[in-house]
C-alpha cells in the first residue's frame, strides 16, 4: 500500500512536472524539427542559474524569470549559430559539449561568488520570491493520502503552478504544431531540402525551434530548482538522457507524450526501487545499489524503445522516420 501511495504521489510531484516541461521543450527540438539536442540539461541549468542568481541580487520574480529566459535564448543562439548548418550529429556533439561546459563553469571554484561552485545555491537563497506569492496557508496540508507543505519548497503551491505551466506549454505545442510555422518545422524534419526549395529559410526556422525549446527547458529547470536546490552536478549528461528516455517513452511529436512519459518514468523508477527493496534480500543488493540498478533498467528501456517502438506509447510511427 505504501508503495502504491508513493508511486501515486510521484505522478504529480514537482520533479515530474519539471521533467515534463523540459521534455516539451525537447519535443520542439526533436519531435517537431528533428534536432538532436543532447544538451538539454544545459538549458535547464542555465535557467536555474539565471533565476537563482538574479533573485539573490534582489530581482523581483518577473525579472528573474526574464533573466533566465534571456540567458537561455542567448545560449540557444550561440549553439545554433555554428551547428545548425552542419549534419545532425554535429549538433548532438556540440550541444552535449556545451552543456557540460556550462556545468564545469558552474562548479568551478573561479565562479564561487556567483554560482556557489560545486555546492551550488541553497534553496532558501532564491525561493522566497516564489513562495511569497503563494495563496496557500503556511502549514502542512493533507489532501487524501498526501501531506505536503502549503507554501515551502516542494509544496502544494509549487505543484499547482508547475502543472498549470505544463498544461499551458502542452497547449502551446498543440497550437504551434497545427500552425503554418509548425508545418514548416515538420517539413524540415522530414525533408530539409524540400522545404528549402520552397523558399523557406531552414536555418532560421531551426534556430527558432532551438531557442523556443531551450527557453521551455530553462523554465523546466526553474521548476526543478524550486523543488530542490541549484546543484550543477544534478544537471549532468544523465539528466539529458533521462529526458530523452521519457520523451521517447511517451512519444515524440505528440502533445501529451512528454507528460505521459515523465509520469511513467518517475513512477516506475519509484516502483522499481521500492519493489526491489522489498523483494531482493539485502545481501544480494544493498539499498545503495538500488539506484544504479534502476538506472541500468532505464538504459535498457531506452535501447529497446528506440529499436522496437521508436514512436513511443502515443506516437505515430510514420512521424518518426527522421535520419541525418
Amino acid at each position: 500500500m505504501d508503495i502504491f501511495i508513493d508511486a501515486l504521489g510521484e505522478t504529480f510531484a514537482p520533479t515530474t512536472a519539471a521533467f515534463a516541461l523540459a521534455a516539451i521543450g525537447l519535443n520542439f527540438h526533436y519531435g517537431m524539427t528533428g534536432l538532436l539536442n543532447m544538451g538539454h540539461a544545459g538549458f535547464m541549468l542555465l535557467g536555474m542559474y539565471g533565476f537563482a542568481i538574479s533573485t539573490q541580487r534582489g530581482a523581483p520574480i518577473w525579472l528573474a524569470l526574464i533573466v533566465a529566459m534571456v540567458v537561455a535564448v542567448l545560449f540557444g543562439l550561440l549553439l545554433g549559430w555554428p551547428t545548425l548548418k552542419l549534419r545532425g550529429d554535429y549538433l548532438a556533439i556540440v550541444t552535449i559539449a556545451a552543456a557540460e561546459m556550462i556545468r564545469f563553469l558552474g562548479r568551478s571554484q573561479s565562479l564561487q561568488g556567483l554560482t556557489g561552485a560545486s555546492t551550488g545555491i541553497r534553496g532558501n537563497d532564491y525561493k522566497y520570491t516564489f513562495e511569497a506569492l503563494s495563496p496557500f496557508p503556511d502549514e502542512r496540508i493533507t489532501v487524501g493520502w498526501f501531506t505536503y507543505h502549503g507554501t515551502l519548497s516542494s509544496s502544494w503551491w509549487l505543484r499547482v503552478v508547475a502543472w498549470v505551466m505544463v498544461l499551458a506549454f502542452a497547449l502551446l505545442f498543440w497550437r504551434l504544431s497545427k500552425s503554418p510555422w509548425g508545418r514548416v518545422l515538420k517539413g524540415i524534419r522530414e525533408d530539409e531540402d524540400a522545404v528549402r526549395s520552397l523558399g523557406k529559410n531552414v536555418y532560421w526556422y531551426k534556430m527558432q525551434a532551438l531557442v523556443l525549446g531551450g527557453v521551455i527547458g530553462a523554465l523546466g529547470g526553474i521548476l526543478w530548482a524550486l523543488g530542490n536546490a541549484v546543484q550543477p552536478d544534478s544537471m549532468g549528461r544523465p539528466t539529458t538522457f533521462w529526458i530523452w528516455t521519457l520523451l521517447l517513452l511517451g512519444g515524440a511529436a505528440t502533445v501529451f507524450g512528454p507528460v505521459l512519459g515523465s509520469v511513467l518514468f518517475w513512477t516506475s523508477l519509484v516502483v522499481v526501487k521500492r519493489v526491489a527493496g522489498v523483494l531482493v534480500p539485502d545481501s544480494w543488493m544493498t539499498q545503495s545499489e538500488l539506484e544504479p540498478f534502476s538506472l541500468v533498467l532505464v538504459g535498457i528501456t531506452l535501447m529497446c524503445l528506440v529499436v522496437f517502438r521508436p514512436q513511443g506509447i502515443l506516437g505515430d510511427r510514420r512521424e518518426q522516420a527522421i535520419n541525418v
Partner: peptide, 11 residues
Amino acid sequence: VSIGLSLAILN
C-alpha cells in the same frame, strides 16, 4: 541506442 547502452553499462 548507444546512449542507452552507455547509461546501462555506466550504472
